[in-house]
Amino acid sequence: MSVHKSDIKRITTHILQEMKGRGEKISMLTAYDFSMARILDAAGIDVLLVGDSASNVMAGHETTLPITLDQMIYHASSVVRAIRRCLVVVDLPFGSYQGNSSEALRSAIRIMKESGAHAIKMEGGHEIRESVARILSAGVPVMGHLGLTPQSIYKFGTYSVRAREEDEAQKLIEDAKLLEACGCFGLVLEKIPADLARRVAEALTIPVIGIGAGNFVDGQVLVTHDMLGITKDFQPRFLRRYAELYNLMQGAVEQYIRDVKEEDFPNAQESY
């Protein structure tokens, strides 16, 4: 029996809060296009992040900085059209919110209106609190992001683990509490010590999602192309590959090429 779209229970920020309350872990992956998002949503993923990692994964840039707001809206729109159940969160890209709360609000509203997404995500703590407050005042749900913040890569100069020292760890905890106090519905912690991530998750009432932050948080997020083994060279310690699709896809294409050149494809049954 088919399930009508209206019968499917949609994941909301409130449901994520309930999941944390009962100790149910939250699953989150990235998506940038319709076809992949449809597969992930059908599999039962809780949250899809239209990440500015599209700059790396889809466009081949070295960092997340080059991707534009228009490009993020394009990717987000493609993902939203595919989903029936999960929550869709979209990264505000570099340059669309830093240092100007009015610009931040305009960027967030454009994403929500033009893509149909459910929430936005922003990197940073106290330095973006004005922008966070202004976006929230317009009724747009905001997810925070602390620890390794890729949009600030040229400031840090490295992708190494953040907040190993106590002073930086304390600042991270304070920023996390500030984001919760501002009204953020959730928080991503990237590449920080597991013990620190546990301290943050226990200190906050909102869900805390980790990537390279250990197992003591409320959920996990990975880049889908990394998790599926579509990317080949990126192998950080926190990544678990659940498939090796690069090799599988390359093998299929090589077989197709052979079949075409040997006139095996199409055969009689595949012709009209």
Rank of each mutant, 00 (worst) to 15 (best):
A119I: 05
S77N: 08
G251E: 07
G23W: 13
P150G: 12
S160G: 15
C86N: 06
Q71G: 10
E127M: 10
P266K: 00
M143R: 03
L148E: 05
M143F: 15
G219Y: 00
R237V: 12
S115R: 07
D233W: 09
M72F: 00
P141F: 04
R241C: 06
M58W: 02
L92Q: 14
A201C: 11
H4Q: 15
N215L: 13
E103P: 00
A203D: 10
Q250A: 14
A117T: 05
S2I: 12
A31N: 08
Q170W: 11
V223G: 08
R240G: 04
V142T: 01
Y242D: 03
T63N: 05
N215V: 05
L187R: 11
V80M: 03
F185G: 03
L245Y: 11
E190S: 00
D195E: 15
A176S: 12
Q17V: 01
E254C: 04
K9D: 01
L245C: 05
R237C: 04
E174N: 13
F216H: 15
D7V: 02
N247S: 11
I111F: 01
L146S: 05
D226F: 12
S131D: 12
F234S: 02
E127L: 13
Q269G: 13
H126V: 10
T224M: 14
Y272K: 01
D70F: 11
S2A: 08
S137I: 04
A176D: 01
I45M: 14
R198E: 15
G147R: 06
G124S: 12
E202R: 15
E103R: 11
L179V: 11
V3C: 07
G95E: 03
V253H: 06
I8S: 00
N267A: 13
F94M: 06
A268C: 03
G219R: 00
L179P: 05
Y256H: 14
P141K: 01
V217W: 13
K5W: 06
Y246L: 07
A194T: 07
A181H: 12
E262M: 06
L172K: 04
S27Q: 10
Y32F: 15
R258K: 15
H118K: 07
T12A: 03
V90W: 01
E180P: 02
A268G: 00
Y246D: 13
C184F: 03
V47G: 01
D41W: 10
Y246R: 13
E123N: 04
N247H: 13
L148H: 04
D70A: 15
P207F: 10
D218P: 05
A59G: 00
R110F: 03
L16H: 03
T30F: 04
V80L: 03
I209K: 07
V140L: 06
E270R: 11
R258Y: 08
Q71V: 06
G251R: 04
V260K: 02
S107P: 07
I128K: 02
A82T: 06
D167S: 09
Q71N: 05
A108Y: 02
Y74D: 13
D259W: 01
L48A: 09
V89A: 08
D264E: 13
A76T: 02
K5Q: 10
I111K: 04
T205H: 13
E62D: 12
S271I: 06
S137M: 07
S77K: 15
P193T: 11
E263S: 14
L172A: 07
Y32H: 14
Y242M: 10
T12Q: 00
P236K: 02
I192H: 09
I73P: 03
V90Y: 03
V90L: 02
A169E: 02
